[in-house]
């Protein structure tokens, strides 16, 4: 399935958000996720199915003002 993860087009085998994080090598405990513009809480990731062309954001703490 083709997805957009952090703005990058990728081909993945994962069909849910939790598996996607594992497949893409993210440290699941230290990121926050959004699917198609909506926040997905960590406990809901495994039950969140990914559709073709879904836009996923995986964000981490960064410097800010």
């Amino acid at each position: 399935m083709r997805l957009e993860v952090n703005g990058e087009a990728v081909e993945v085998a994962a069909t849910n958000l939790a598996d996607l994080l594992t497949e893409r090598g993210f440290d699941a405990a230290s990121v926050a996720t959004a699917l198609n513009g909506d926040f997905v809480p960590a406990p809901a990731r495994a039950a969140t199915a990914l559709g073709e062309g879904a836009k996923v954001e995986v964000l981490a703490p960064m410097q800010g003002g």
Binding site: V58, L59, A60, P61, M62, G65
Partner: peptide
């Protein structure tokens, strides 16, 4: 203050 950004080098 801090922000959230796409995970890059130096995050940890």
């Amino acid at each position: 203050t801090v922000s959230l950004r796409r995970e890059g080098a130096g995050g940890a």
